[in-house]
Amino acid sequence: MGFFSRNKQKKSGLDAKSRLKLVLYSEHQGLPPETIEQIKTDIIQVISKYVDVDIDNFDIKISPDGKLAGSNGPALQANIPIKERKIKRI
């Protein structure tokens, strides 16, 4: 029994390779966290001129699959919830 179950077990060498490929992919595609943070701050600043942004739920990330954004490669995805429409008078 031990013999059969051992044969079915996934070999750890394959695990190592696939985990490495994944982590390196995201490291290569990813912008440095401080840059992402800077982009986030800038976007909030711009949009806040017009509407009230729900900053707590604001999310921005690089996605390896950019199909939704119409890209064959990666895409920058931002989720920007708005609290309420705020009309600013200039």
């Binding site: 070999k11 750890s12 060498g13 394959l14 190592a16 390779k17 490495l20 490929k21």
Partner: peptide, 14 residues
Amino acid sequence: KRGEMMSAEDVLEV
């Protein structure tokens, strides 16, 4: 050989 270590080819592929 037992599949418990990446081969040199695996490392190269990565």
